[in-house]
Design a protein around this nucleic acid. Structure first.
Length: 512
RNA sequence: CGGGGUGUAGCGCAGUCCGGUUAGCGCGCGUCGUUCGGGACGACGAGGCCGGUGGUUCGAAUCCACUCACCCCGACCA
């Protein structure tokens, strides 16, 4: 049942997991998807809302997931030649006026620092802003760092010998959002932003695609979430980019989620910030640019892609705890015996590089712990009781399918290791099957609407390529063009909305 | 910024319409005991300026005015 390789001696087979009673304090996806999501965030200890509107506190367990994502991505960035750096949180307001599209895109959601000092209220009502400490030039808290970085790059670049610049920064950014949701959209969020400068257009485009592929690779192989790579329509493009590429994932409620973006910025920022270099031929030319980023939103994607009505489900590669051992005992004598055996198992797993936790707390009961670790999405659970010690066995349960078996304790290390691989792959396969079931063709406006209302999911449909049509579709159905697929075959047809000729299908969905 | 809603113990709520003992309930928390292979049970216990300010009244969680905060639905968005 666990899908362990054949050489494992399964002592007792097919104990199908059965939950005796459903947690009454936990919503199901069916009942209320967004409440289910919030319940997971809260009950799994990922994050909580804070004293500041729209901002969340990322709790240790949630942050540990982000750290695992960071570690994997950071390695991938370095493997592709990038180095980390750090630029200021504050950006002079004037920088924003340099690139017209960029200002327009971000102006409405910028937090601005106007003063640098507080003082005691003369009327005794605490502290107030000291009006005498007004900044000469106001500072914008970065919604993204293109402007400050390009202003800096001007200093760094003189010759083609200074290129390329391949820099990434891990940082927080602020976008004053009207409506926020834990991880998916918060006023302040954590992310990484890569900013590169190149001598040629071709090289910059190549970089843009390379990083898109890095993101797709990360999403599929670490997060176990299948993604579709594509380019954005003009409406959805990053403010200031020539072209925006993205990876799009499908969530369990049939809504799409943009999981990463990679932008080809052309020479827009180089021109706005006057970043020029002397080419080999001796000509003074503007630099070509890219930027690319993923954020803590990925944690939200992870939750919505795999989790079930029992709580969070984490892919082993991103799980802060990959296996937990729960000892079962009746008295202090048994506690000692069982925990000693459990420690042996723990060591065996650690030798294999598995992140394992032995929960030997006496303050909680086994049943309580089982539920706790299910909420937290720990991929594998082992439990050892007096019977196991006597028989040389251990009970092993997998979180993704909720199945469990009893196996020989000597094989625990191997079994957990095998299960890690199996679970990682199974989550991906399951998510991929879900996406395939929920990707549909629509060749008429009626079927387009019917699919959206009855099923949701991705819709492949013809589009006449105009922003007007896209806007109309959005207004009438709330569905947007998620992307224009990179790998899609050309196919002529008629726009699902306007009936005008179209050369390819594009991907529509309602999105987060 | 529009439309709707909610503020009472750490969390979830009742009480508010119709003012009147010491403001309750569930979960959680603490101590002790029995338990421990799927969220244990019992006994005892701690915990509240009823969002804030001002008013009406002999008396306000309850009525009135103002105010603050948060949530949901829209417009905006990674």
């Amino acid at each position: 049942m666990l899908n362990l390789p054949d050489h494992f001696l399964v002592i007792k087979t097919q104990i199908l997991y059965q939950r005796r009673f459903m947690a009454k304090d936990f919503s199901t996806r069916e009942e209320n998807y967004s409440k289910w999501y919030n319940d997971i965030v809260q009950r799994a200890g990922l994050a909580e809302s804070s004293a500041v509107r729209g901002c969340m506190v990322i709790k240790p367990y949630g942050y540990a997931i982000w750290e695992k994502m960071q570690a994997a991505l950071d390695k991938m960035f370095k493997d592709t030649g990038h180095a980390n750096a750090y630029f200021p949180l504050f950006i002079p307001k004037s920088f924003f006026s340099r690139e017209a599209d960029h200002v327009e895109g971000f102006a409405k959601e910028c937090a601005v620092v106007t003063h640098y000092r507080l003082k005691n209220d003369p009327e005794g009502k605490g502290v107030i802003v000291d009006e005498d400490a007004k900044l000469e030039e106001e500072l914008v808290i970065r919604p993204t760092s293109e402007t400050i970085i390009w202003d800096t790059y001007r200093q760094w670049v003189q010759s083609y010998r200074d290129l390329p610049i391949l820099v990434n920064q891990w940082a927080n950014v602020v976008r004053w959002e009207m409506r926020t949701r834990m991880f998916l959209r918060t006023a302040e969020f954590l992310w990484q932003e890569g900013h590169t400068a190149h001598a040629t257009k071709e090289e910059a485009l190549e970089e843009t695609y390379r990083m898109l592929d890095v993101y797709a690779d990360f999403a599929e192989n670490f997060m176990a979430i299948p993604v579709i790579r594509g380019s954005k329509s003009e409406n959805e493009r990053f403010a200031g980019a020539v072209e925006t590429f993205c990876i799009e994932a499908l969530m369990q409620d049939g809504k799409a989620l943009q999981a990463g973006t990679s932008h080809f910025l052309g020479q827009n920022f180089a021109k706005a910030f006057d970043v020029k270099f002397a080419s080999k031929e001796g000509n003074l030319e503007h630099v070509w640019a890219t930027s690319w980023g993923v954020s803590t939103r990925l944690v939200g994607a992870l939750i919505m892609a795999h989790s079930d009505d029992h709580g969070l489900v984490l892919p082993p590669k991103l799980a802060p705890i990959q296996a937990v051992i729960v000892p079962i005992y009746k008295n202090s004598g048994q506690y000692e015996t069982v925990c000693n055996k459990a420690r042996e198992v723990k060591e065996a797993l650690e030798k294999r590089g598995i992140l394992v936790k032995l929960d030997d707390r006496d303050t909680h009961k086994p049943g309580w712990k089982f539920n706790e670790y299910e909420f937290k999405g720990v991929p594998v659970r082992l439990s050892i009781g007096p019977r196991d010690v006597e028989n040389g066995t251990v009970e092993i349960a997998r979180r993704d399918t909720l199945e469990k078996e009893v196996i020989s304790i000597d094989q625990a290390g191997q079994a957990v290791e095998a299960l890690m691989t199996e679970i990682q792959q199974h989550l991906f396969r399951r998510a991929l099957a879900f996406r395939e079931e929920n990707t549909r063709m629509a060749d008429s406006w009626e079927s387009f609407n019917r699919i959206l209302d009855e099923k949701g999911g991705f819709i492949l449909a013809h589009w006449d390529g105009t922003a007007e049509t896209e806007q109309k579709i959005k207004e009438e159905t709330k569905a947007t063009i998620r992307c224009i697929l990179l790998d899609e075959n050309k196919e002529s047809g008629k726009c699902v909305y306007s009936g005008k000729p179209s050369g390819r299908r594009v991907l529509f969905a309602r999105a987060y």
